[in-house]
Design a binder for these strands. Structure first.
Lengths: 385, 385
DNA sequence: GATTGTTAGTGAACCTTCTTTACAAACTCG
DNA sequence: CGAGTTTGTAAAGAAGGTTCACTAACAATC
């Protein structure tokens, strides 16, 4: 009897063509992360036979997704040289859109390696409701039109609660409720569209391009608001109700913190007080350090970092995370804030938990949300992450 | 192009026989949860064809796992009556062992429905090291020998950090380090053995028998220590380093809580102070309420509940959990403690997070850890959860 | 009571995809 | 140059699913 993995609820049946999809994805995944290789190399790294790999590669060649790159040259190796096969990263384009900003639509064209080929922005005529959707559609259409190569798909990172099918359940910022955004855009553009929460796309971007281990990753996006995307055991956590990662409105400042360096809990847009967002969102951070001398500013940032660490400690412990990534301006998040957060986490969790923990600021910078949206497409269309 | 689910890293190849295993598990799963049904019923609920189901059922009949139970009788339905097929829950036994106690080994024989058929305990001659392993082996052997039906497997819930292969990475209470417990026991007993962390087995038990939704479940085990098992998106969270759920040693009481009803942070066995365990573990709870009149005792329990809620709030938010279950004595955990914890969580998280949240004490009672260990076997051997 | 329509279960033929086996081509090394 | 390796592909075989076709059993209706 085979030792099954500890994955419960298999849910849906398995057909030969599903196996094909999985194996295809494995080949693409290997080429994506491992770079070009011979068919024999692919066979070894995937565990499939050379025969099967030949067949799959033939299929991918026909679709134009991969190309033969000539002979492998390795000195001192006996035997026939393999034919290198590589992903044609330059032959396709991905459209990525970031909807986090209330005023500007941010978008980019990327190739399959995730490199940004073209980047542009547009102003919302109206950032809410059907008008916003119309703006978004036009923006996407323009990006798709600007592509000089076939477009593999469109990835959109949007604030709000979004299910796995790309339906926006609620996005107060855009006044969207129960909007089948992916379906609407797919229909309008004639191109596959994938939509996910902006923090989730950030997490995907970090997972794929940020060198994240994938064993347990939390990406905290710090902007107008605060959100989080979580990858556990190689999969995004969506949560019951698809609202996982809503860390921005967890209480971080108590009444009893009155006397502390942070001052009393501040009122939050959500109607409560002391939410993490009231101290960690960019406007709050900027306000807090404005006009302070460097030493005081550092102390102020550290006090925010400490509160962040206190909120994160239970999450890090519960999930035994390997990595926490702060996504936002490094000049605010990178220094004392990060250090204080990490110190607080270490202080408040077991060594076994904090021992392997990394806490760092994203290395992807500005492009992070767009890279993540691109991963949405890579994952959805090619099975590559 | 098929819309793949958002599961990243397919990892391993898919063969026809894997498909068979999955489909077999789907049939068993349906019979387990849905009770007996005709082959046609199974075809409808699994999505497989009647032909395939016939084939699979034939295989299961031959193995003795299922039996035909006569004709289905439904009034007012046209057509031939189906032959009911049901799991032979009485025909096999599962051995479940709970290693949480430092003095006693707890074990049981269960049938495939999870009902306890026989229950027994034994005293450790020595609860640590190789001696403890010898005790455990003998105890298991006795249970397996006592079974009057074929034993499907042995499930063990143990404290400590345990990987998916049943290797105990570290279990200080038993002085076990890097012990391949599942392999050792399998070899000694000649029966498949599955081992997991006690909190994880508790979570599995709750997931399977406690009517948990499965969309997001955290089971907090409160005993000598405090641990947690987490099921997210239908799978146990193991964590980088397999140490997920280590909530017992998250700081829950701060220095600044000195003046509060809980008093100053207490020293913890782990060397730090103010850990959740120092207020929530059973000894701590009992000590706190000892000799108090009911009103004061309730207040004391509520103050502990509040600290628990504060620790859980970030976790509940981050994972958008559907359900938190407290596993332990209901007389301590059920009343004011639970209420205060839930109140604290509601107070400190967004409505969208707390709205769908259930917080309750386990309904499985004493049998919870053993049921969970049994699920380990059901899951490992039959794919049923 | 015969007929009609529906449902259950199974056998036969076929499809897909993987594997095993076999082989030619290309390369290194002695 | 022969021996041994490695690559890539063709042909045959195995596993497990599906569709199609059929028989059996049953309710309802004429």
């Amino acid at each position: 009897m085979p030792t099954t993995t500890r994955t419960l609820r298999p849910a849906s049946k398995v057909l030969p063509e599903h196996a094909r999809v999985v194996h295809r994805a494995m080949v693409l995944q290997q080429l994506f992360h491992g770079g070009p290789g011979s068919r024999a190399d692919l066979a070894r790294s995937t565990g499939l036979t050379r025969v099967t790999i030949s067949d799959l590669v033939g299929e991918l060649l026909a679709e134009g997704l991969v190309a033969e790159l000539g002979q492998a040259h390795e000195e001192g190796k006996v035997g026939k040289r393999g034919t290198l096969v590589g992903l044609r990263t330059e032959a396709f384009r991905i459209v990525a859109v970031d909807l986090r900003d209330d005023e500007l639509l941010h978008g980019a064209l990327l190739d399959l390696s995730g490199a940004v080929v073209d980047q542009r922005s547009a102003r919302f005529t109206e950032p809410r409701g059907e008008a916003a959707l119309a703006d978004l559609t036009a923006f996407c259409r323009a990006l798709v039109g600007a592509a000089t190569r076939p477009v593999l798909g469109v990835g959109v990172g949007s604030p709000g609660i979004i299910d796995a099918g790309g339906n926006v359940l609620e996005a107060p910022n855009r006044d969207w409720y129960d909007l089948p955004l992916a379906a609407r855009l797919t229909e309008a553009l004639g191109v596959p569209v994938h939509v996910a929460n902006d923090a989730d796309t950030a997490a995907l971007g970090e997972f794929t391009f940020g060198g994240a281990s994938g064993a347990g990753l939390l990406v905290l996006t710090v902007g107008q608001g605060v959100g989080a995307g979580i990858v556990v055991d190689g999969a995004l956590v969506s949560g019951h109700g698809h609202a996982a990662g809503e860390l921005g409105h967890v209480t971080a400042v108590d009444e009893r913190d009155d006397d502390g360096p942070l001052g009393p809990p501040l009122p939050c847009a959500c109607g409560r007080t002391g939410c993490l967002e009231t101290v960690l969102a960019l406007p709050a951070l900027r306000r807090r350090v404005a006009g302070l001398d460097p030493t005081s500013a550092d102390a102020a940032l550290a006090s925010v970092g400490r509160r962040l660490g206190i909120v994160l400690a239970p999450v890090v412990s519960a999930l035994n995370l390997a990595e926490v990534v702060l996504s936002g301006p490094p000049e605010l998040l990178g220094g004392p804030l990060r250090d204080a957060a990490l110190a607080a986490i270490r202080e408040r969790t077991m060594p076994v938990t904090s021992r392997g923990l990394q806490l760092r600021v994203t290395t992807l910078g500005e492009a992070a949300p767009l890279s993540g949206a691109a991963v949405l497409v890579l994952s959805g269309q090619l099975g590559v992450t």
